[in-house]
Design a protein around this nucleic acid. Sequence first.
DNA 1: GTACTTGCAAAGATTTTGCTTCCAA
DNA 2: TTGGAAGCAAAATCTTTGCAAGTAC
Lengths: 147, 147
Amino acid sequence: MPESRDLRRPLEQELISRGVRMTHQRRLLIQIIQGADSHLDALALWQRARRQDPTLNKVTVYRTLAMLKKYGLVDELDLMHLEGGRHYYEARTTRDHIHLACIKCGRIQEFESSLFEKLKGQIERERRFSIKVVRVEAGGFCDRCKP
Amino acid sequence: MPESRDLRRPLEQELISRGVRMTHQRRLLIQIIQGADSHLDALALWQRARRQDPTLNKVTVYRTLAMLKKYGLVDELDLMHLEGGRHYYEARTTRDHIHLACIKCGRIQEFESSLFEKLKGQIERERRFSIKVVRVEAGGFCDRCKP
DNA sequence: GTACTTGCAAAGATTTTGCTTCCAA
DNA sequence: TTGGAAGCAAAATCTTTGCAAGTAC
């Protein structure tokens, strides 16, 4: 899966270099996404953004997320819909990873694996399918919650 | 990932053996899910069911799907939300598989792989995470749509 | 200045809930 | 007979759209 974009580059630079207009709303939202400790959904992102700019509208959050998704700068996750049907977002990193969602405590773990990379390669080769985004989510019991 | 239930057993038998009440609505919905050629969402399932029983309510479809999901008899898919935020369902089969969604033509392919089985094993071992459901979805260009 | 973006209000899409009636076991 | 299930209507949740006003470049 060749990837020309340098994913370590901050989102703002990335957007500017693509000719996307930088508004202060976008700058704020991007900053929150990049600095987030956990996976945020639109509502959580909006709530954090409002602390800095109370006039920022929820619609702007949705539109900004759609824009970032369009440019492949964020990944959209379901995290097994442990609570409601919302989507979660994370800035795309250099390496794909798997999300493990504990159905008991709700903890989300991330997991990287060369087997995963091999699996992607296998799909691309055997199906001649060009992967643009890939999402792996597992639901189950984490080590702390295992019966 | 040990799996005690015999997944080849028809859904109806499976439900009865679990003491679930069999209504004619459930029988009809299960039959459609098992015989479906493609992945159905709640609306599509309802539309097909209504051809046989015009009084069957959409809410019953949602409740039946929730029940089947609870018992682990169907898997819920997003298929990369190529069109809207709906969920798709498929009867659980003996072997997990990966869904490949073409972002150009919308075609959904399924892919089985021993690498995938190995990957699950690795997760269970290294994280001591007990996987109950796993969902792998890739979006990209299929062989017919590749530029 | 101009085209793109925002805020606001409203609508749209999908799913869930409350409650009464009905039916499978 | 009786507790669980279905139907109906209404609500809840999450997201998108139309349009006037604002703003980055």
